[in-house]
Amino acid sequence: MTNSTMGKAMTGVWIAAVTVAAFLWLPPAQGFRSPEAARMVVFHVPCAILTFVAFLLNAAYSWKYLRSRDPLSDGKANAAAELGMLFAILATATGSLFALEQWGSAWNWDPRETSIVILMLVYAAYFVLRGAVEEKTKRARLSAAYALLAFPAMVFLIWILPRIVESLHPTNTLFTRMGLDVTYRVTLWSFFAGLLAVFVWMFRLRLRVEQLEARVRRQPDEDTTPEPVLTGEQR
């Protein structure tokens, strides 16, 4: 077994073990409307943190691309944005389940719920932009510039807006002693560590797809037959 396969197997075992520990080791959290279901935070919060990490990487690689014009940086920026979107969807879905149990409704237009919807729309536009421009260097340049414009909006939506408007979400619970209970904090960060390893795995695999697609595009197109002109069609 190679080191890479071993690492992937260990990552799978690790997140499976943390999932089981969250069921068996974590006590129900008193003070919540549904103490049993409060354990969901250990799955929801790491997804939300990785959303930020991915969009931060997107901005960093976009900046790198504009400085170096290296196509690999553009590929990495795109891969990071795709992962950011995946984790944003997972954070929203798990958060909705939490809201359903604790706040009585799956969607409450809470500042954090609203901001993640805006954030997903902002990055959906990034993918639309990439899909709309065919020329490779122009696409890379425009999407990198857009990603750098989206970055301050992302920081505002994740870190500032939920703190200046009254929210159902608590703030500063992860790093302070007054926040989450130590058992919750250990489980949450353990799950985060496992998800981070999966994140690296997905990022590398996504980059491999990007590189293979570039190689396929470089292959000479053997089908040089002209497209048939339909009757009455003006060319």
Partner: peptide, 20 residues
């Protein structure tokens, strides 16, 4: 609530392994 709680990790697992 326990059922909702059980769906949550399954959703995360399905998302990440589906994408992989």
């Amino acid at each position: 609530p326990l059922l909702t709680y059980m769906i949550t990790p399954l959703l995360v697992w399905a998302g990440i392994f589906g994408y992989l």
